[in-house]
Structures are given as structure tokens and as C-alpha cells.
């Protein structure tokens, strides 16, 4: 075991791991964080806490993660390289670790253009790959990126994102290989709707034995409505939503679409768990956290293992 991370322990045990997501509020609203987190408690092994997601200012991932820790939940502390340079990031990593946060996700982050601070400087002192390298260096060598020794180095279980659907597709396996080389321990994928394409990607992953070097958690997002399905298909960069799925959502009455979305989600998990190399699920129920218990239970992923 590289770390004390509960997520690492579950993954190492061979059980399918489950993570959820908590997007911090746009204000000093600790109760919102706690309410969202409470909905997930007991149903997931760890909870991703996003970092200024979609380039909008929110309560920091660090602060919200601390609230989760205080509730005895296990945050996956997300960090984007967009907003801070390597000094700030490393400072936060040791700070977070000091608060008992031992799992993180290294991302480059959405471009500021998509948020409400399009005028902000786009830092990117490091990219996500280099952040992975940095966190690994801090853990395994006990050194800051600049080379100095860290007293009581943070032992982070290191995650990253993987998008099996973005262009160019032929590069997607190589890209994960590169993250493995940089030192990633687990990846959570982009929401999977096109399972055939995901299987093709996983075949490529297995051909190179990458599934034995990194835990792959399949990303799942239940769709609330046919409108959301169409939006994800047409507007979200790097998202692959097949036409059949949009049709299926549109084919049921409006008041039944949410349930249909959950059903699709359960069916997807059913199919994805058969794929060799899938180590767990990352359920991103965006502003729909109350549905996570139902999904986890119906998918047969409940109760969560005690490790």
C-alpha cells in the first residue's frame, strides 16, 4: 500500500470501488457542503470535491474537503493547474494532507472562457501530467518539485482524469500510458454513454497491460431529461452520447425521463462491470446527489466494503 487512502484499500482489495462527487457552493455555505456529503455517506468509498469546476469561483476544494473529513468521509481532493502555480499547489497539498486528506485528483481544468471569470489569467505553470509527477515526487522521494526535502512528506493516492472519447481517439490509450508513466495510481473516466467505444478503448488498454498498472474507474452520470442528453451530446466538449440514447430518453414521457435516466445508468454499470480492467465506478450525479444511494443499491454495489 502506497498510502492510507481508503480508496486505495478498496481498490487493492479487488472489490469494485465507488466514488461520488460534491461540487462546493458559490458562497460561504458550509451547510450545503455537509448536506450534499451526507447524502453520499455510506454509499461511496470516497467523494470527489471539485476545484472551481467549469472555471467558476466556488468554495475551495481544500476547504470543502476539510468539511468532508470532519464528517469522516474521504474526499478526493481535486486540483486544477489553471488557477495556481506550483508553490500554491504544493502548499495546498501538504496543507490538505495535514488535515487527513490523502487522495487527490490532478487536472488541468476547464478553460476560463467557459466560466464567469473569462478575464482571469490562465496559470498553467504545470500541466496535469506534471502535477502527477510533482505529487508522486513529494510522496515517493519526499522532495518538493524544486528539489528541496519535505519534512513529513504527504502520502497522496494520486488520481487523474481519462477521456476515452476525445479526439484524436487513436491517442487516447497512449495518453493514459503517459499518465501511468508520470505516476498516476487511479483514473476516473469521462462519463461513459458510448459503451462500444469505451470497450474499444479498454481493449487498447489491456493490450498494453495498462489496466494492471492503474485502477480505472468508469465515469457514470445519470441523465435527468432528454434535454440534458441533447445538451451533453451537442454542447459538452469531449462527450460522446449516442443517438439511440437521446432517442430512448426522448421516447418516454417527461415525468418518467428521470427514472429512465437512472435505469440507463444501472444498465450501463451492469455492462461495464463485465469489462476486464474496470476497477470501479465514479458516479457524477451533478446536483442530483440524492439519487446516488438508489443507483448504488440497484447496481448491487451496496453495502460498501469496510476496509
Amino acid at each position: 500500500m502506497k498510502t492510507e487512502s481508503v480508496l486505495e484499500k478498496v481498490l487493492a482489495s479487488g472489490e469494485l470501488a465507488v466514488t461520488g462527487e460534491c461540487g462546493p457552493p458559490r458562497g460561504a455555505l458550509p451547510d450545503v457542503v455537509k448536506e450534499k456529503a451526507a447524502l453520499l455517506k455510506g454509499y461511496v468509498d470516497a467523494v470527489n470535491v471539485t476545484d472551481n469546476q467549469t472555471a467558476m469561483v466556488r468554495m475551495s476544494s481544500f476547504a470543502a474537503s476539510v468539511f468532508l473529513r470532519q464528517m469522516d468521509l474521504h474526499p478526493v481532493f481535486q486540483m486544477v493547474t489553471r488557477d495556481r502555480n506550483r508553490l500554491a499547489m504544493q502548499g495546498d497539498i501538504i496543507g490538505a494532507y495535514s488535515h487527513g486528506i490523502n487522495t487527490m485528483l490532478c487536472l488541468s481544468g476547464d478553460h476560463p472562457k467557459f466560466g464567469d471569470h473569462a478575464m482571469a489569467a490562465n496559470v498553467h505553470d504545470l500541466d496535469s501530467m506534471q502535477l502527477i509527477q510533482t505529487v508522486r515526487g513529494m510522496r515517493d522521494k519526499g522532495l518538493f518539485q524544486g528539489g528541496a526535502e519535505i519534512k513529513n512528506p504527504p502520502k497522496m493516492f494520486i488520481g487523474a482524469a481519462a477521456n476515452p472519447f476525445a479526439d484524436p481517439f487513436e491517442l487516447r490509450v497512449a495518453r493514459l500510458a503517459k499518465k501511468v508513466k508520470a505516476g498516476v495510481d487511479f483514473v476516473q473516466t469521462q462519463c461513459i454513454y458510448n459503451i462500444d467505444k469505451f470497450e474499444t478503448w479498454m481493449q487498447g488498454i489491456r493490450d498494453r497491460g495498462l489496466h494492471e498498472q492503474v485502477y480505472i474507474m468508469a465515469g457514470i452520470t445519470p441523465m435527468k431529461s432528454a434535454g440534458m442528453a441533447r445538451y451533453m451530446k451537442n454542447k459538452v466538449p469531449g462527450m460522446d452520447v449516442p443517438d439511440e440514447l437521446v432517442k430512448r430518453m426522448a421516447g418516454v414521457p417527461k415525468d418518467k425521463q428521470a427514472q429512465e435516466g437512472i435505469d440507463i445508468c444501472i444498465e450501463s454499470i451492469e455492462r461495464l462491470r463485465q469489462i476486464e480492467g474496470v476497477s470501479g465506478f465514479h458516479i457524477m450525479a451533478i446536483e442530483w446527489e440524492e439519487k446516488v444511494p438508489e443507483i448504488v443499491k440497484r447496481a448491487g454495489l451496496y453495502p460498501r466494503p469496510q476496509v
Partner: peptide, 20 residues
């Protein structure tokens, strides 16, 4: 690169075009 990624591309590349 809009994010000056030294190890890209990010997940937002579509048909050879940048997400921005």
C-alpha cells in the same frame, strides 16, 4: 495550446479543433 499544456491534448479537443 489554450492551456499551454506541455503534455496534451486535454479532453476538449474535437475534430482537431480547440474547445475554446
Amino acid at each position: 495550446c489554450a492551456k499551454r499544456l506541455m503534455n496534451g491534448p486535454c479532453g476538449g479537443s474535437t475534430n482537431g479543433k480547440c474547445e475554446i
